[in-house]
């Protein structure tokens, strides 16, 4: 049984970091200059969360809805699935999440008022939208393989958690949180398997989200 302990996180993946980041670099190239626009769009999300003006709320929810559909079809279906057949099972939940966000954008609820919740949502959106792509600085890859929230599922899931927590409540919030939370676990573990320490940020995002839901302040 000694051999069983020779498992490493990367053994659970079907592909190597080299291949995954080349896929990302190729996808970035195909959709240039979207990778450059993504951090700017993240600022729109942060502004919407901060000001909570109805027009910004609607725009940011709609933008995020489109991002879920776009990431699903452009990256997951066309690219990632070629090296990871299991991805096929994620297509329906991603499209569902996009649809649910779009419906919420059509009639957004009154945002929740707890200050700690607002603070943590801003943190999650800033993490997914601005900080996560800086993973290129610590991994063995270059800027061409930066994973930004408009193109890749992990930063998108983290940013979505922040947006949903900061802008929705009640059943809408309950409907919109589970899929990004589950993806944070899957995607975070995958990034760790790819030896990217930023996987920890993705993996811990659901815990931050749960903390934001706790009734810590009135």
């Amino acid at each position: 049984m000694e051999t069983l302990f020779s498992y490493r996180p990367g053994d659970l993946l079907l592909f190597s970091p080299r291949v995954y980041w080349q896929l990302v670099a190729g996808n970035n190239d195909a959709f240039w200059p979207l990778p450059l626009l993504a951090p700017l769009m993240a600022l729109v999300l942060l502004w919407a969360l901060y000001r909570q003006a109805p027009a910004f709320i609607r725009t940011s929810l709609a933008l995020t809805a489109v991002a879920w559909a776009f990431v699903c079809l452009s990256f997951l279906w066309l690219e990632y699935r070629t090296i990871n057949p299991w991805v096929t099972w994620t297509i329906a939940p991603f499209l569902f999440q996009g649809g649910a966000l779009l419906l919420t954008a059509a009639r957004p609820p009154q945002p929740p008022a707890q200050p700690h919740r607002k603070g943590l949502s801003l943190m999650l959106v800033a993490w997914g939208g601005l900080i996560h792509p800086l993973g290129v600085l610590v991994d063995q890859r270059n800027w061409a393989a930066a994973d930004t929230w408009l193109l890749y599922p992990e930063p998108l899931a983290v940013a979505t958690l922040g947006l949903v927590l900061g802008l929705t409540r009640g059943w809408r919030c309950a409907l919109l949180l589970p899929i990004p939370m589950v993806w944070c676990v899957i995607g975070g573990a995958t990034l760790l398997g790819l030896e990217s320490p930023f996987g920890w940020g993705v993996l811990l995002a659901p815990l931050v989200a749960i903390t934001a839901l706790l009734p810590l302040t009135r």
Binding site: Q22, L23, I83
Partner: peptide, 12 residues
């Protein structure tokens, strides 16, 4: 295993 899972990337 892993080494040849390179998808459609022509270079790989």
């Amino acid at each position: 295993w892993i080494t040849f899972n390179v998808g459609d990337n022509q270079r790989l």
